[in-house]
């Protein structure tokens, strides 16, 4: 019970955007002119913008992790390993809150944007399509805020990440989180959710696709391109 309260409190304290606000604004979409303006941006500028938004979201995930009972008791190597491997996955899970499945738009820089707004990302268009498909499938599960909170914690605290120094300790923390999640689902009669969650490999594949696209971008541009990207983004993905 205590752990559940801690997960929910940590999630609420570090949530970037409130669910009520996202819901209230879900039909506030970019105009045709605004979409065209985004499409006219250079590929480099659009990548930088997206990297900036991803980095902001990841900073909130780091704060979430720091508040999770037991996370800061893991050794420093393992804290970094878990965040490096899981932060982007958590951001993708959170995206289902900021996604309107009725018109396939996502909250981006103040309004809801369709996939076409990201056209200037160039070859990363496939990635955008896959991310939108993932958000759509997660939205279909209609997860509550407490469920998203637990899913975030469970994505992060994963004992099978490579390079962990104390996987047993991580595994123990994960087991407690799983028990808390099961109790929550039982209480809300949502046990069926566990069987309907997308396989873990799907998140991993999306993250690999993101890194591959970034590598392809680097191959096509001078190394100075990355200087304009947020340092945390470079540290995690470059």
């Amino acid at each position: 019970e205590q752990l559940t309260q801690n997960v929910l409190k940590s999630y609420h304290e570090t949530c970037q955007l409130r669910a009520e606000d996202l819901q209230r604004r879900r039909w506030d979409t970019f105009s045709r002119e605004e979409i065209c303006a985004y499409q006219k941006k250079s590929m480099e500028e659009m990548w930088q913008r997206c990297a900036g938004r991803i980095t902001e979201a990841i900073q909130h995930v780091v704060e979430f992790a720091k508040r999770l009972h037991g996370f800061m008791e893991l050794c420093q190597n393992d804290q970094i390993v878990l965040l490096k491997a899981g932060a982007m996955e958590v951001v993708l899970v959170h995206m289902c809150r900021a996604f309107n499945a009725d018109n396939r738009t996502v909250f981006f820089e103040g309004k809801y944007a369709s996939a076409e707004l990201f056209r200037s990302l160039g070859r990363a268009e496939d990635l955008i399509g896959s991310i939108f498909d993932f958000a759509q499938s997660l939205c279909a599960l209609q997860c509550s805020e407490p469920e998203v909170a637990f899913l975030s914690a469970l994505v992060l605290v994963n004992a099978s990440r490579p390079w962990l120094q104390e996987p047993v300790k991580v595994s123990r923390l994960r087991r407690r989180l799983e028990l808390g999640f099961q109790l929550l689902l039982r209480r809300t009669r949502r046990e069926g959710l566990l069987d309907r969650l997308p396989p873990q490999g799907r998140l991993r594949a999306l993250c690999s696709q993101h890194v591959e696209q970034l590598q392809a971008l680097r191959r096509r541009h001078p190394p100075a391109l990355l200087d304009a990207f947020p340092p945390l983004y470079r540290e995690l993905f470059a």
């Binding site: 780091v62 720091k66 800061m72 190597n77 804290q79 970094i80 945390l232 540290e235 995690l236």
Partner: peptide, 16 residues
């Protein structure tokens, strides 16, 4: 840790 200086710093920075 050297490779993850920023992440390391964020983790060290209190609970804010």
């Amino acid at each position: 840790q050297e490779k993850h200086r920023i992440l390391h710093k964020l983790l060290q920075n209190g609970n804010s």
